[in-house]
Amino acid sequence: MALMPTHLSTPPLTVGFDLDMTLVDSRPGIRATYEVLAAETGTHIDADLAVTRLGPPLEQELAFWFPEDRVQEMGDRYREIYPTYAITPTLALPGAREAVAAVRAAGGRAVVVTAKHEPNAKLHLAHLGIEPDAVVGWLWAEAKAEALREYGASVYVGDHVGDVRGARAAGALSVAVPTGPCDAAELREAGADVVLDDLVAFPAWLGGYREAARA
């Protein structure tokens, strides 16, 4: 039996991206949503503190402010009001659109894998004109590996040590940006393979990565 040429069996380039504080600065919208939730419930929530801890699932943050038996209810309410208060104020981070476009221009697929409620993640991306090939929500840290493996991602880009762990669990190259709550030293210590200043540097890095892969 003749062997297939190697170049025909090479999987397509697939790059995963985190959402909050990697592609988008969602702090203004999240802060506003927490403030509305606090007003509705009469519960003190330090929204300024909460937005410094973005990355883990919502329920982890809500557990600081509500008793355990109310966390799920408050999470449901937060997600319900989120589109009204959080989408418009959220901004694309510098280089976000260009990073996703660079993957697609290289003939690859860009997949957003986030811990955020998936419908709200899609609203953010549509509002900001960022166009990945797929969006997968509700996955945090090592659980992100499920989607990364499903889509065959060889690279995962994120801002949190949880994103580094997700990439490593999937056997993907971890590319980190210190644009969220974790600084460059924390990301390197967690095992990031590459740390870029921000996504502005990503297209040039991707070009070098692809060139090295062809060598």
Rank of each mutant, 00 (worst) to 15 (best):
R97I: 15
E61G: 12
L62T: 00
A204W: 14
V175N: 09
T10V: 12
I130G: 07
L148D: 01
L173P: 09
A121K: 04
S9N: 07
A106N: 07
T90H: 02
R104W: 07
S174K: 04
L125V: 09
E40Q: 14
E142D: 12
E211G: 06
L187Q: 06
L3F: 09
L199T: 10
L37C: 02
Y82K: 00
D76G: 14
G107S: 05
H124I: 06
E189L: 09
P56R: 13
A143Y: 08
D159F: 05
T114E: 00
D48Q: 13
L37N: 05
L196G: 00
H127L: 00
G108P: 10
R168S: 05
G107L: 12
A192I: 08
V36A: 00
C182P: 00
M74Y: 09
E186N: 05
A212G: 03
P56A: 03
W65P: 03
E150V: 04
E186R: 11
A176D: 00
A126G: 10
A115L: 01
T6N: 14
A169D: 03
L13C: 12
T179W: 14
L91C: 07
V135W: 03
L37A: 06
V155A: 08
R188F: 05
A105E: 10
V112I: 15
H160P: 06
P203N: 02
I45W: 13
V51M: 08
G180R: 04
L123T: 07
P94Q: 02
G42I: 11
D25H: 07
P94N: 08
D159A: 07
A92L: 10
E98M: 11
A115I: 12
A215K: 14
R53A: 12
W205K: 05
A105G: 11
D25I: 12
L23R: 11
L139F: 10
V135A: 01
A101M: 02
E98I: 11
H127M: 13
P12R: 13
A50H: 01
V194L: 11
V15Y: 12
R210F: 10
E61F: 11
A141S: 15
A47V: 10
V71S: 01
M1W: 15
F202S: 04
L173R: 12
L196E: 02
A201T: 00
L49G: 10
P83S: 02
T43G: 05
V112W: 02
V161C: 08
L8Q: 15
A215V: 14
A99F: 09
R109A: 02
G166Q: 00
V15D: 01
D197E: 07
P132S: 07
G171I: 14
L206C: 00
F202L: 02
Y151R: 10
A39F: 09
R210D: 11
R104G: 05
L8R: 13
G152Y: 15
E68I: 03
E40A: 08
E59N: 03
A176M: 03
A99G: 06
L91I: 07
R27Q: 02
D76P: 04
F17S: 04
G171R: 15
M1D: 04
N120M: 01
L196H: 07
Q60R: 15
Y82S: 06
D18P: 01
